[in-house]
Design a protein around this nucleic acid. Structure first.
Lengths: 207, 207
DNA sequence: ATAATAATTAAACAAACGTTTAATTTAAAC
DNA sequence: GTTTAAATTAAACGTTTGTTTAATTATTAT
């Protein structure tokens, strides 16, 4: 599945539009116009609008899997690993926010049945990685035993997603007028907050 | 803005469909058929499909505001209040998951411009309530000082939303085959997990 | 240079869309 | 019982939708 320049242009434009206006809210003519190709090219290259979406999802997830987290093999403490992992998650989700937005919608859409095996595998890999780090911390006695590992990623990614969904609200509430200041906030203050949250949950004394 | 039975039937059907298939993925004929009314009735009662959405949002948010949290005025400790608040949040979002799903999408949709003032006000009220509880806990010395209150609701609601978005994934991962078992998990294990998370963040020792 | 394949186009297609019309039925008021 | 207003209907409206067609241009291979 190799794509040429024009196909990638179509995919890129489609990703932006699908994220901004939804799959059903975007017309193939809109995509074609922005990508500066004829409408027929979308059927010609991808078969249909729906198959374009499938191609886009595979295209993006495949590139996400390349960003492998071998950064974690280092000789750092479990706490440091958790900090790094949280920062990595947030950065990844934020920089891939368009496809995440699309997936978000498609996951709960009962109209189309996308094959999301690849996405499930990514989630399983992440869960396994998280399990290993926490097990290590528990063996060292720095993490407490009763923690629901399966729900941790929901807190990390869910917090970011919810924050980003309410972007206009938080931009005003937190005085972040520009795009740059908003992005900076996500990658610093927000990230620190989630790191603190996860660390607190993992290390806090049982009552 | 009082609605008769038939109007409420249309609103109810529209809510389900908009949540399941998206606003643009739902046709007015689909709504009319399921609500067992003529297509023209939607324009007749609400003016247009878009105004039906606006009416639905107002209708639901108004009913949500009625569920006022005077439950918190009791003589309980800040920690107990936090526990109660988290459980209340989760229950409310879960039982209103359809309209939340719709709002979620509309908040990040650049096509339509819904007037979401009412929703902003709900968020501000919740934030103020949370601020008061935490301030009380800080004065009593049970909560630590450096906590980003504005981001707490993102963690609570975001976690649930992300969990629910990936419902099929978690139903398999956590062995929750039936709807009842899934709902039970949300209202017990999941809620406890979020309560623990928030409490840990608020009470943990600074490093 | 020629043949063959790929890329690109404008136009047409039928189907589905949201909305409106005009006629008819039902309900309420007097 | 008659009048008036509200509710309901089937049909038609003009657009827009995703996709296909058939013709043309560009590229590649021989």
């Amino acid at each position: 599945m190799e794509f040429n320049e024009k196909q990638i242009e179509i995919l890129t434009v489609a990703e932006k539009l699908f994220a901004d206006e939804g799959f059903d809210g975007t017309s193939v003519r809109e995509i074609a116009q922005l990508a500066q190709v004829n409408v027929a090219m979308i059927s010609y290259y991808f078969g249909s609008k729906e198959k374009l979406l499938e191609a886009l999802v595979l295209f993006r997830i495949k590139s996400m899997k390349l960003q492998l987290e071998n950064l974690l093999q280092e000789n750092s403490s479990p706490i440091e690993k958790i900090e790094k992992l949280v920062a990595l998650y947030i950065k990844r989700v934020y920089s891939n926010r368009c496809i995440y937005q699309i997936l978000h919608f498609e996951l709960s859409n009962k109209k189309r049945e996308l094959n999301l095996e690849v996405f499930t595998q990514v989630k399983n890999d992440n869960l396994e990685l998280l399990r290993n780090i926490i097990r290590e911390g528990q063996l060292q006695g720095v993490f407490q035993q009763e923690v629901n590992i399966e729900l941790l990623s929901s807190t990390i990614i869910g917090s970011l997603t919810h924050f980003h969904m309410n972007k206009p609200y938080f931009k005003e509430l937190l005085h972040l007028p520009t795009e740059a200041s908003y992005e900076h906030y996500v990658l610093t203050t927000f990230t620190t907050h989630i790191q603190k949250t996860i660390k607190a949950l993992l290390t806090h004394e049982d009552n």
